[in-house]
Design a protein around this nucleic acid. Structure first.
Lengths: 147, 147
DNA sequence: CTTGTTGCAAAGGATTTGCACGGCT
DNA sequence: AGCCGTGCAAATCCTTTGCAACAAG
């Protein structure tokens, strides 16, 4: 059993919930596949393995994963939300190419430190943050030069 | 005429669009009132002055303002989007209290510099970014201590 | 058994769009 | 006159919810 699945099971038990096959499958597919899926993308993926799983269950399971601290809802400027697996990994931010959509995960300790400073300077206790950098990736920059 | 309204008029003319009374009123109310309004909040405000202005026009005008570079769509984790006036002001980020919802605009040159560095390190040309810090504001921290 | 869970379909909320009319330019 | 913009309502898109049947603990 994969680590996220194990942590999910633990959360389920601790909260008197039930570990159903649907939930297991959704969680498994979510953690195995590419990151930052929309609810619909995940539903479609899950349904390639089991056509009977309803979209509502996918929504409900993703919310559950968020409550369990195993996923995080993100808004990248599209209409629909995207969910990102949290694993045990350290927190990270995003660098997105506005041309091709490539989404690179980044982390910079210096920025994190400065964020703490800014919060403190305003008297806030910092609990979390989101940062998205938008730009043009190396490949798209090169293509642009060709044109 | 206010500065944003002037800039709006310029954009309108440059693009062969029309400067209608509805648009003027929406833009004026948007820039005068509190920041970070939802489309519906703005529509309601606008309708206190002119009941005949439709919600669709508010939506369309806000999109137009974004295209004109005078407003920016933001997602603060609610279902609906919020729009923020851009004026000529410098860019800024947000520090939000997760208890009372207070939204403080922040700017830290050090962070901005580091963001450039991170982008460059990944070969990206940085075009823009969004950063939201979540925490608990001084007032709410104090209340918490009382309890 | 008891209670949580599921799929479906309907409901809801936010945003967009088709259309006929009205008003700039 | 020609075309853009408007309000309205219908349409869409995304997400949530009520419900009866079902299944996990």
């Amino acid at each position: 059993m994969s680590e996220p699945l194990r942590r999910f099971a633990a959360y389920i038990t601790e909260h008197g919930l039930k570990n159903t096959p649907q939930r297991r499958r959704i969680v498994e597919v979510f953690f195995k596949s590419g990151k930052h899926l929309t609810t619909e993308e995940l539903g479609t993926l899950v349904r390639t393995q089991d056509k009977s799983i309803g979209q509502a269950t996918v929504y409900r399971t993703l919310k559950l994963l968020c409550r369990a601290g195993l996923a995080k809802e993100q808004h990248f400027g599209e209409l629909s939300a995207r969910y990102e697996p949290l694993d045990n990994e350290a927190h990270h931010d995003h660098l997105i190419c506005t041309v091709c959509g490539r989404n690179v995960e980044i982390l910079d300790a210096g920025i994190e430190t400065k964020q703490e400073e800014v919060a403190k300077r305003n008297g806030f206790m910092l609990t979390s943050h989101r940062m998205i950098l938008y730009g043009i990736c190396p490949e798209c920059l090169e293509k642009k030069d060709d044109a």
